[in-house]
Each structure stands twice: as C-alpha cells, then as structure tokens.
C-alpha cells in the first residue's frame, strides 16, 4: 500500500508540474484538436448495447486539452545559484521579502552594484535572464498558474520555507524538490489538520467549467481519487486502473456495490427501448446528473388529477 501511495504521489507531482502558467503559449504546446462526438464504446456490462455519451465526459472537450500530461517542460534559463548566497549568511527574506515572492532584478543590484566588475558567472547569469526591452526578469521556477501560495499563512503556521521549497542549492533544484507538489501539500495539510479542500489552494485556476464543481458526495475525497492523475480523459479505480468515462459505473460501484449489482440486472436505474430487444442503458451519471453532487434533485410535480366535483 505505501508503494501505491508513493507511486500516486510521484504521478501527482509529475502531473501538477505540467500545469505551468499558460502552458499553451509559453511552451508552444499544441492542443489536440476538438473532436465533437467521439465514438462511445459499448461497455461490457451492457451486453453490447450502446450507452449515450455520459455528461461530463471528455468526448466534446477533452480534459487533456488543458490538463497537459507527461513530463514537465524545462525552463531553458539557468537557475539562480541560491547556495552561494546562503553561504554568505543571507536569509531567504533578504531577497524574497517578508511576503515572499520572486524578487525583481533591482534587489540583486543592491549588492551586485556594477555588473561590469562582477565575475564571469554572474555576468553570464544576468545575460541569460535579460529581456528584450533591456530589463531583467528573474526566473520563476515555481510557476503554478492555478495555485496561490499563501506564504503569510504558512509562515504564521510555522512552516519553514524549505518545507515546501526544499533546501536551496546551486544546482537547478526546482526540478527535484522545489515546488510544493500537490500530494505533498495534501499530506502535510492532513497531518496538520489544515483545510485540505480544493478551494483552499486552487483559487485562480478554477476554469469556468470547474467553478461549479462542489463536492457534495464522498466529502474528504480529492479530485484525483476518481480522476486519473496522468490522463485526465480517464477516471481511475482505487487500484489505479484507468477507466474510460463510459464505464464510470465501475468507479461508482467501488463504494455502491449493491447498486452496481442491481444496475447490471436492470433493477436499478433506467433503460429505454425494447423490453425484448435493443435497449439503451443509462449510466449512473445520466440520472444522478452531477457525479460531484449526485443526490437526486427535488422535482416540480406535474399537475394533480381533477377532483370528482370538478368534472363536468
């Protein structure tokens, strides 16, 4: 089990690193084309009868369009040599400030007063981060477009900078251990009994289609408990197995076993068509609509029958 958790954490890290700020333009990543109405395979449990495309499925708008998977795209610019600075008894806050952020270049020049007199390595670094308009933009290794790091809050809770960012070193440490990867965040938050819902950290990225996602179902679970961490066009079982959205009932059935059993026999859920021939199976999400809040909604009843005294 710990191995599985480790694997999941590793996958989460990889996945989350991929959500750099504006991954589309900054890194020249081309989006896969939108293909409306992808063919829906018939799940094994429906005896070969087709199911209508489930709502929320990636058929119309693949999740992978935004959640770009795979290896992180490296920033080609060199890393700032933190180790050399710390060796001179500097504190993080000296450059990053009390409310930590990536410093502007003028902070550097408070010490590195005359660039021409600096050693070759320093000159090379500044040459590498020089922008087109003659200024300097220090590298932002920790670019996560969706997470607002609440530095003040973490500082107040006594979380050291290195807890999330790792011990700064001269090597390009960012790739290995700098960023507060989500799985680590979650583990730490749970350990410290800090709020660990999505909204706690992800405030900005909430894409329009995710703004309405409120978990009124299996509270305490996280997105990636059901969504496949490496490939967002798929769901996942507890054992990590990839499951297409058309077989989402397998995900639901992990907890709702008796209902899954009844559904397979046609005792739970709805089927339309022929009682003795081709019929259409509806998936859990067709009736329970929103898998994040699947409680069957209240309905407005159709008008009541006429009372006998009203019949004329």
């Amino acid at each position: 089990m710990p191995l599985v958790i480790l694997l999941v954490l590793a996958a989460c890290e990889r996945e989350h690193h991929a959500t750099f700020e504006d991954p589309l333009h900054a890194h020249g990543i081309k989006l896969p084309p939108v293909e409306p109405g992808l063919p829906v395979p018939a799940p094994a449990e429906t005896r070969g009868f087709p199911v209508p495309p489930p709502p929320f499925s990636p058929g119309i708008f693949p999740c992978s369009r935004c959640h770009v998977g795979g290896e992180p795209v490296p920033d080609p610019r060199p890393a700032m040599p933190h180790g050399k600075h710390l060796a001179r008894d500097m504190e993080c806050a000296d450059c990053h400030g009390k409310d930590p952020k990536v410093p502007e270049a003028k902070v550097c020049f408070e010490c590195h007063e005359d660039l021409a007199k600096e050693p070759q390595a320093v000159q090379a670094y500044f040459a590498a981060v020089k922008t087109a308009d003659g200024g300097y933009a220090l590298q932002r290794r920790v670019k996560t477009r969706d997470v607002i790091p609440n530095h003040a809050g973490h500082a107040k809770a006594g979380v050291a900078c290195a807890t999330c960012h790792g011990e700064p070193a001269d090597a390009p440490f960012a790739k290995e251990k700098s960023v507060a990867w989500m799985a680590r965040c979650v583990a730490c938050h749970e350990e410290r009994k800090a709020p660990a819902s999505c909204e706690t950290c992800h405030k900005e990225i909430r894409e329009p289609q995710h703004k309405d996602v409120v978990l009124h179902h299996a509270e305490g679970h996280h997105c990636l408990d059901c969504h496949h961490e490496g490939d967002r066009d798929y769901l996942r079982l507890a054992n990590g197995q990839k499951v297409p959205f058309e077989e989402s009932y397998r995900v639901c059935g992990q907890c709702h076993g008796p209902n899954l059993r009844d559904w397979k026999q046609g005792l739970h859920g709805k089927r339309t068509g022929m009682w003795d021939g081709e019929r259409q199976y509806l998936l859990c999400v067709h009736c329970h609509r929103n898998p994040h809040a699947p409680r069957f909604p209240s309905m407005v009843p159709d008008p009541p029958p006429a009372r006998p005294e009203d019949i004329r």
């Binding site: 046609g266 005792l267 739970h268 859920g269 709805k270 089927r271 339309t272 068509g273 022929m274 009682w275 003795d276 021939g277 019929r279 509806l282 009736c287 069957f296 309905m299």
Partner: peptide, 22 residues
C-alpha cells in the same frame, strides 16, 4: 409492449423506478 417496446410510463420515469418485462 406488443411491438416489443417498453411502456411509456417506464420510459418517462426520471427516477428509474419502473421495471417491465416478460
């Protein structure tokens, strides 16, 4: 139903409460 189809009330039921067969 004699043409093999489900009854109308079954297909209209939004809760899937209705079951029919031979």
């Amino acid at each position: 139903t004699r043409a093999g189809r489900y009854p109308a009330c079954l297909e209209a039921c939004p809760t899937g409460a209705r079951k029919f067969g031979n």
